[in-house]
Design a protein around this nucleic acid. Structure first.
Lengths: 215, 215
DNA sequence: TTCACAATCAAACAAACGTATGAATGAAGC
DNA sequence: GCTTCATTCATACGTTTGTTTGATTGTGAA
């Protein structure tokens, strides 16, 4: 069978798995649900991905990789143009994720929910994904923040980057709950609104005075 | 059999379930693992809790309830003494969770990880737990914040409360990863340190100027 | 037309799952 | 001493799980 059809099958599996992982979680999703949704044979998963574990890894890295490439490209562009303001760094960090979550909005905010679970899923595959796919990005943004916020100690930079990531993860995972809590006042799918609110909060949080005595 | 032994069995199940849910997640934890760890008979779960679903609910609400009672008591104390500063409100919100996660540190930060997954677990029981156990707390803190930050619109208060919660959830869920990222520089089990860093960031984020034109 | 081989398929595998059953146990009340 | 009843126990039930197998299909190269 030709290459195009293989891609079709693999992609159909990835799409269905992504959707179901987002809705019900990894463990609660069976290969039979996935292959039934994707309209492919059950054995196709093990044929193309070897195991459920590797399917999980593929589902996540298919989205994480281009997202992080965009982050790094944007950060690099800022640095070569010497235009790294705190706001622009935050935009470079936040926007690729929000774009990704909203651009594939044929299934709504679904992928965001899956993405937001990246740090909390106890599934073994996640631990290695965080290290291999997110490690470099985190370190590079930590450096960029440290340069822009020279009044902070290294420890404070790490803490505040951690909170900055947490805001994004929680918004991806629980954005719908915010809509409910605010009784519909907030639309978590409005990209510009989400970005504006996040950057405002994070910029202020990151810029807060240092708690440590100057050296 | 007497009351004390029943409590023993129920608590042994709850303790084991809590530990395993934190380590591997709800779906990946079987009743056989739980009862084997708790050293009780397999049928004891369905005898005492009717189903795995109700066990899940019991495991979570056993920790959430006293935590939220403490939050509301502290907020009420601030309001009757007219002593609600932004910092004291944040302390009233954050400290009960951190206390809970660290006081039961016979298994380290484990319960925190389970708690941090409250908003991301796709398990059906979570949705109702968030509404019933967290709804009132969120609304009361939203009101308190709105009073202390009169320059913000209602929408902005909800957004910023959402971020403030996200910081906590992510710290509970991924605190260990922060230790790893910072190469051991940060100790996420140091209560005073965690609290100080969180309140500093959140206070600044919440106090940021409004983005909306004054009415 | 024949061959080779990647891809798909139905079917089966052992293992593990949540739940239910009915008998055994043992302390409390009469 | 006998009965009562909540609890514990070993065992079994019917499903569902991820994975494997061997046959079947269909396309592109020789």
């Amino acid at each position: 069978m030709n290459e195009a059809n293989v891609r079709d099958t693999k992609d159909k599996i990835l799409d269905a798995a992504e959707r179901l992982f987002a809705l019900h979680g990894i463990e609660a999703t069976s290969l039979r649900q996935i292959t039934s949704d994707a309209e492919v044979n059950l054995a196709a998963v093990n044929y193309h991905f070897n195991s459920k574990d590797e399917l999980v890894r593929s589902v996540y890295s298919r989205r994480i990789r281009p997202m992080n490439e965009s982050r790094i490209a944007r950060l690099q562009a800022l640095e070569t143009n010497e235009a790294s303001t705190l706001e622009s760094i935050l935009e470079a960090f936040y926007e690729p994720t929000i774009d990704m979550a909203l651009s594939l909005q044929n299934h709504g905010f679904t992928i965001g929910q899956m993405m937001g679970r990246l740090y909390t899923e106890p599934h073994g595959a996640m631990q290695s994904l965080i290290v291999t796919e997110m490690g470099e990005v985190a370190r590079r943004f930590a450096l960029a923040l440290a340069r822009t916020l020279p009044h902070l100690s290294q420890r404070e930079v790490f803490w505040r980057l951690h909170f900055t990531i947490g805001m994004l993860a929680h918004t991806m995972a629980a954005g719908e709950k915010l809509k409910h809590l605010s009784q519909g006042l907030i639309n978590p799918h409005d990209k510009q609104e989400v970005l504006r609110q996040m950057i405002t909060y994070a910029r202020a949080g990151l810029s807060a005075p240092s708690l440590e005595p100057a050296p």
